[in-house]
Simulated scan of single mutants.
Amino acid sequence: MAVSAVRVLGIDPGSRLTGFGVIDLYGQERRYVASGCIRTPQGATLPERIKVLLDGLSEVVMLYAPHEAAVEQVFVNVNPAATLMLGQARGAVLSALVLASLPIHEYTALQVKQSVVGHGKAAKEQVQAMVVHHLRLSGTPQADAADALAVALCHANHRTMAARVPRGLTVKGGRWV
């Protein structure tokens, strides 16, 4: 009996550059499908940027037909204006995924780094290196695309762990109860 793949779309939202990464899951195996960035025009207004993000992500969803999506959560920045802009970009990303009727899973940057690198304080270069390692890539993806692939890998790891947990158990305070 053939194992069917689950296709996961990982997203690293940004107001100027939004990374995306697509992987297929075959049981424990993870296979690279595609990655890239949606770039908003410099000097564009917020509504113009949101339209570019919505259209770009809708195109990615249509082209790669993922079954699930994983999105990095926004962290609170020192600069409130930058945090607000990032939140609005993330809202556009979530809207595109909701309109595509995709199940959406959210992970913090700490969760992504812990899952992919092994510790939550990993540098971008470490994340990129581990993405290359886990997906056996011949080259290093652009940083935002690598972050999006890391989000997809994080979700794959959480899916695998959740499948192994006996029914009825949940996590509270970092413990299974």
Rank of each mutant, 00 (worst) to 15 (best):
N157Q: 14
E106I: 03
R7A: 01
A122G: 11
L110F: 12
A123W: 00
G36W: 05
A5D: 08
G43A: 04
L99Y: 10
V78K: 15
P13N: 01
V33C: 04
V78H: 13
V112P: 05
H134L: 10
V3Q: 15
P166W: 10
A82Y: 12
E59A: 14
Q142I: 12
V177N: 10
L135V: 07
A122K: 06
H158N: 11
A122T: 04
Q73W: 07
V71N: 06
G14K: 08
A100Y: 05
A70Q: 08
R159V: 05
V171W: 12
L9K: 04
L135Y: 03
L84R: 10
L99Q: 13
H105M: 02
G10H: 03
H133Y: 13
V71M: 05
Q28A: 15
Q114A: 00
Q88A: 03
G139T: 15
L97Y: 07
L46Y: 04
A70Y: 06
A146W: 05
A89F: 01
L54D: 05
I104C: 03
S95E: 14
C37D: 03
L57I: 01
M62H: 11
A145D: 08
T45Y: 04
G27M: 10
R90K: 01
M1F: 08
A89V: 03
Q28V: 14
S35M: 02
G174Y: 09
G118W: 07
H158K: 06
S101C: 12
E29A: 14
T18P: 03
V112I: 14
F75E: 11
G14W: 02
R16L: 06
S15T: 15
G27E: 08
T140G: 01
L57F: 04
Q114W: 08
N157I: 08
R159Q: 13
V33I: 13
K121E: 11
A44S: 14
M130W: 01
V117G: 12
G27W: 07
I11H: 02
G174F: 06
G139H: 14
R49D: 00
P103E: 02
G174N: 04
R167V: 14
T45H: 04
V71C: 05
G173I: 00
V22A: 06
L97T: 00
L63M: 14
G14Q: 03
A129F: 15
V78L: 12
Q128F: 02
N157K: 09
P66Q: 00
A148M: 07
L17K: 13
L94N: 09
P41V: 07
M161R: 14
G10R: 04
A2M: 05
L169Y: 10
M1L: 10
L94Q: 06
Q142M: 03
W176T: 11
R39G: 00
N77D: 13
V8Y: 10
H158I: 02
Q111C: 01
R30W: 09
A122V: 09
M161W: 08
V132D: 02
D55Y: 06
R175F: 10
G21W: 02
T18K: 04
K51I: 12
L169H: 15
